[in-house]
Design a protein around this nucleic acid. Structure first.
Lengths: 158, 158
DNA sequence: CCGCAATGCTTTAAGCTCAAAGCATGTTGC
DNA sequence: GCAACATGCTTTGAGCTTAAAGCATTGCGG
């Protein structure tokens, strides 16, 4: 919904934060939709799958499901199903943790690592293309400002 | 040469856009999670329901399901279920369109309008609180920069 | 006026997501 | 050592989301 348009004529002040939030959300949503679309079209996969592979790719020694859940910032019930689907496809494997019989260590299979490398390369190209219209100066400024916004949001939801 | 000068002169890194995208996504996600959490805790509702009420609130004469789907930027199959659930709860009503027997016009019931007004007020307070740590100057700068980013993203996904 | 494409909505199947409840194992305090 | 609490994972139930297929109606070209 183009909520920004709806708010465009109102007097400034009380609703500035609302406008900022809607614009932030619009940017993130547009970008995310495009990335999801391409992951589906070119790799027949999804963003959560890609994110899980990315988390595991950064941890060659593997991660417990709980660690994955924290890094992906999703519920632990969520990663169970995700891991199972990726395991079925042979991209990931659960192996028993030697020290804790409650836990698994999840790791990429060689196939999973190869797949992620392919997807990751394409992903970087897509992101660069989507943000190609942002100048280096704007990019640096945005990065800094979003850093402060992130801090504010984290405070506010603590 | 101090660190800042050195940084300022560095060639743009290949992964700067990736970092920017990650940070943008983090901000949006943190904020959205908190808003979803509070909608659930305080109003026992969800963000998509709130969004649909918001779309209808701006259109007192009602909207067809297709119009709602376009404004919310979701699939048309999506709004069918959402509308049905809100209809069951008495917040929304489908009435036959006089001119087109394929279409419904969806509108808020008086109860729906009252509910949305309550939720909307709280929502504005939450957003203000979450962004309270962003100064007015930063807010204006962010808004402008995100406007350019939005344009770039829209170009890139056309 | 008739055929047929376009439009508006719903249904279906698959996947993602969460909160809450449950089970197995680990850890701590007594 | 054992009770009680904590941790790691899975299951369950509900809702959101999409793409694709299907049905009904509209509107257009011939």
């Amino acid at each position: 919904m183009d909520a920004e348009t709806a708010l465009a004529g109102l007097p400034p002040g009380r609703k500035d934060n609302l406008r900022l939030w809607l614009r932030l959300l619009t940017c993130a949503t547009l970008m995310e939709r495009e990335i999801r679309r391409r992951l589906r079209a070119e790799f027949n996969t999804t963003l959560p799958r890609f994110d899980m592979l990315a988390a595991l790719d950064r941890a060659p020694e593997g991660l417990t499901l709980g660690e994955v859940s924290r890094r992906m910032m999703v519920s632990n019930g969520n990663v169970t199903g995700l891991a199972s689907r990726l395991e079925e496809e042979g991209l990931v494997e659960r192996r028993l943790d030697a020290n804790d019989r409650r836990a698994f260590r999840l790791r990429l299979t060689p196939l999973g690592a190869r797949e992620f490398a392919r997807q990751s390369r394409a992903h970087e190209v897509w992101v660069n293309a989507l943000l190609a219209g942002v100048t280096p100066a704007d990019r640096a400024a945005l990065h800094a400002l979003l850093g402060r916004a992130k801090h504010s949001i984290a405070e506010g939801s603590a």
